[in-house]
Nucleic acid binder design. Sequence first.
DNA 1: CATAGGCCCGAGAGCGCTCTCACGCAAAGC
DNA 2: GCTTTGCGTGAGAGCGCTCTCGGGCCTATG
Lengths: 331, 331
Amino acid sequence: MTGFRPTIDDVARAAGVSRAAASRVVNNAPGASELTRARVRAVVAELGYQPNESARALASGRRRAVDVIAVTSGNRTGRLGTHPYFSRVLAGMMPVLESADAQLRLHAVGREAAADAVEEIAADATLGMVLADATPAVAARLYRRCRRVVSMVPTAASVPGMEADNTGGAHAAVAELHRLGRRRIAAIHGPADNPCAIDRRLGYRRAVEELGLTAVGADGDFHREGGYAAALLLLEQEPAIDAMFVACDLMAAGAVQAVTATGRRVPEDVSVIGFDDSIAAVCANPPLTTMRLPVEEMAAAATRLLLEGNPGPGHRQRFPVELVTRQSTQN
Amino acid sequence: MTGFRPTIDDVARAAGVSRAAASRVVNNAPGASELTRARVRAVVAELGYQPNESARALASGRRRAVDVIAVTSGNRTGRLGTHPYFSRVLAGMMPVLESADAQLRLHAVGREAAADAVEEIAADATLGMVLADATPAVAARLYRRCRRVVSMVPTAASVPGMEADNTGGAHAAVAELHRLGRRRIAAIHGPADNPCAIDRRLGYRRAVEELGLTAVGADGDFHREGGYAAALLLLEQEPAIDAMFVACDLMAAGAVQAVTATGRRVPEDVSVIGFDDSIAAVCANPPLTTMRLPVEEMAAAATRLLLEGNPGPGHRQRFPVELVTRQSTQN
DNA sequence: CATAGGCCCGAGAGCGCTCTCACGCAAAGC
DNA sequence: GCTTTGCGTGAGAGCGCTCTCGGGCCTATG
């Protein structure tokens, strides 16, 4: 508590201008002469003035902050604590927020009450919110009420969003496996109601069809446990499987464990290809070949969009999903 | 934009009381009769009143929010995006914040300018800040200026903090390895200037000494890469190593990969025991036996402390570090 | 019956800022 | 010469809330 904190009035007084003038230069608003700007800026530097965000937010009706919404399902924090995805979103947003000096508020909202909860958040009038993993329904409803929303996952066409080529990525993964000579390519999919998982599933189906292979898959939960269980199931059903496309690295790490546990080798007997390129890919043993989802870049772009102003309805920004080769596929 | 948002004046008017009275019941402050409380509460429910946080913060000089500080080193987001630790901190805080309806603001501050940056943050007068990974020096300096700080990592005695038994955990890990019959127990340590790493290193040294073994160790960076490299180095220097104590799961995952890469088996030839019990432990193959650091619990407790008011100087809360057995150690 | 002491209550003064608005003054147009 | 345009400016009215303070009532006490 250094004690005194200068207000804009102090600045104005010291600079010999009105409060309004000082406010204009502090906010880089038009309507201030160069002379005034210089004077005020000097005083700001000297006094170490820092605007009070609360007052600013109250007066302007808008807070220089961006909300991140993580939907929690069941247990109170959902995947927030365990899934690498969220930290990547945060890490991607942080630098752009920093340089715009805006703040980041994190919210975990329950799945059922998501829309209502988020509306409460919206009432606070920040620069907008990044929906890390909202369902299309929630995202759409939310966007209708309060513009200033951008989704990180596939949504209704109207909602501004960052769009990764999930389908193409899955397709490319299967193609890569095929290129490596694999012909019995099974899939471990994500939750049936997860938009990303749906697209990846589609990509797998298409690729398998095009290549004249037969589709065989099991559903997972986007977690290691689910991947492990699904792989075990698959291996039992179809012992001749020689490759697996897994819709998320966490599950893929589990799948690799399962393959190993049945006495098979990765990648010699079974090649495994993951999705995301998260920390899990690199921790798995052997490290996973995977389809890189550029989460950080997407999050940064989403944040920039919000910072710039109201994203237009249907705004879309597309991101490629690229193959990262490591040891879980044989070359 | 549903349009109208009721203010406390609307509530007061509708309830037939003064604004002050309404404020008192909304804030559960003393000095309001049961009758008034009932009336106001009814109106609040009916109108769906929600206090404007900015106005509240401006008027009271305190914002219902808790800051989380992650120190970024070098690259702009430091370990935020890649290390499971941070999401665990956030996940631990979220529920307690939610139920106290306070908000969570995340800040990534550069290592060099950490203290200054954080002071700016402190100027905003929130309920306090949780230092996820500040160095003792920064933490101490910060605490001196603005109370309302709690550290998640070991610090100077004055700074309120959550204290996990890092030393004991490391000691227990080595003891476990010894119990399993291992006698050439190497260590992969964390960064030499990291408080947690220092304690874990100490625990290892003591245990090795007590057990009459010889200490052999290499330094890592708390990341997978460092763990991999260190393990390789160790294995080359001392090929007869039969166990490794690794100061963090991420590094341990790398170590397991390295052990495997040299043609050795985990746990048959080399047992590996990690630290943290993070997602990395479970993604490694084989899954890691590890010392569980109760990060979520610690973060929750830190948050509660801040919510309750000024933590006294030197406030300490101790947490055990417990063995979690998985497959990377032989039983 | 008078006084003291609680307990509720409402008026009102800010908190630090933004933003509208009207005004002064210069240059430009008739 | 006088009106128009325009820019730079400052006064002042809030934004929605908290919190102090004095006052009214109602009960306990002497």
